[in-house]
Computed example of a mutant assay.
Amino acid sequence: MPFLKHNEGKEPVRIFYQDYGDGKPVILIHGWPLSHQAWEGQVQSLVEDGFRVIAYDRRGFGRSSQPWGDYDYSALAQDLRQLILHLKLDDVTLVGFSMGGGEVVRYFTDYGGERVSKAALVASIIPLVAQKTDNPEGVPQKNLDGILATLKTDRIGFLKDFHRNFYNYDENTDKMSEMNLDYDFSIASHASPIATIKAAEAWASTDFRNELKNVNVPTLIVHGDADNIVPYKSSAEQAAKGIADNTYKLIKGAPHGLNLTHREQLNELLLEFIRK
């Protein structure tokens, strides 16, 4: 199995990745609390359209190693950077889903977007999850504190029900089966407990608003207008105002997990954008 091993942070890590196809490289960065397997519906479409697709597991998740610390976004972006260097990639399109949007933006902040020609933010947490006086549409801090408290006391119980809201399951039973919920639970429950908590702390607290200007390549922003996890008005709508060269697409009726429920629409948008 392919692993990237590096010692650039406080602890050595092994990052698991899958590398398929040829052509222009596309790196898929998964959301919380899943793994590269969440991109199943996009990998095949992109590879069959002639792209080289790399999907990897964030540290602490999937098959990657599970260090105790270093889950801030600069550490996560460093893993992405090392993967790009390891595979000698150029002209890369970065695609970040949900939490993964943070690695995309931080990569431009920390590395100037070197070797990257395009970016895509899909149902992304960018630029700020938490509700603030100047971010009134965000998630109230008491709700975020409640999530973190539950993860520390009943992580498995929290994860058992999390993905029903992730996919707006009751409204989308024609687009997915309940086995999809079981599949996601299996992936999420086997992630590192400490990584699940620390990664949640990162996406819940990091303010990327001042970093949006660093994204200096054409960027696709895709979000669902029925996203109950990351409301589009505090995320995609704000990202579109802060990233200079962007294409903003709002999918009607799509939940947070639109990569599954609205797979074909998302794939069409990604393919059209990357082909240009």
Rank of each mutant, 00 (worst) to 15 (best):
S65G: 09
G41V: 05
L46A: 11
G62P: 02
R59Q: 09
R59L: 06
G41S: 14
G60C: 04
D57Y: 10
G41W: 04
L46D: 02
P67N: 04
Q42H: 13
F61S: 07
R58M: 09
Q44H: 13
Q44E: 15
V47N: 13
F61P: 01
S45I: 08
D57I: 10
Q44D: 14
V43M: 14
S64D: 01
E48V: 10
G60W: 00
D57Q: 11
V53Q: 04
S65L: 08
D70H: 08
W68H: 01
F51L: 14
V47G: 06
Q66I: 08
F61G: 01
S64G: 01
R58P: 00
Q44K: 15
Q42C: 13
G50F: 06
F51H: 15
S65H: 09
G60N: 02
R58Y: 00
G41A: 12
R63M: 07
D57S: 11
S64A: 00
S45K: 13
D70F: 02
F51R: 09
L46P: 06
G60L: 01
S45N: 10
V43A: 07
R52H: 11
G60M: 03
G69Y: 06
D49F: 03
S65W: 01
W68M: 03
G60E: 02
Y56H: 13
R52I: 11
V53R: 03
G62K: 01
G50C: 11
R58S: 05
R59C: 06
F61I: 00
W68T: 03
D49C: 10
Y56K: 03
G41T: 14
S64T: 01
Q42I: 12
S64M: 00
G50R: 10
D57G: 11
W68Q: 05
G50A: 12
F51E: 09
R58F: 00
R58T: 14
S45L: 04
S45A: 15
G69L: 09
S65Y: 07
G69F: 07
S65D: 08
L46S: 13
S65A: 08
G50H: 08
V47I: 15
E48C: 13
Y56W: 15
F61W: 02
S65E: 08
E48H: 15
S45Q: 12
Q44F: 10
A55I: 04
V53F: 13
V47M: 10
S64N: 01
G60K: 02
W68N: 00
P67D: 03
G50S: 12
I54F: 02
E48M: 14
G50T: 11
D57A: 11
S65R: 08
V43G: 07
V53E: 05
G62C: 04
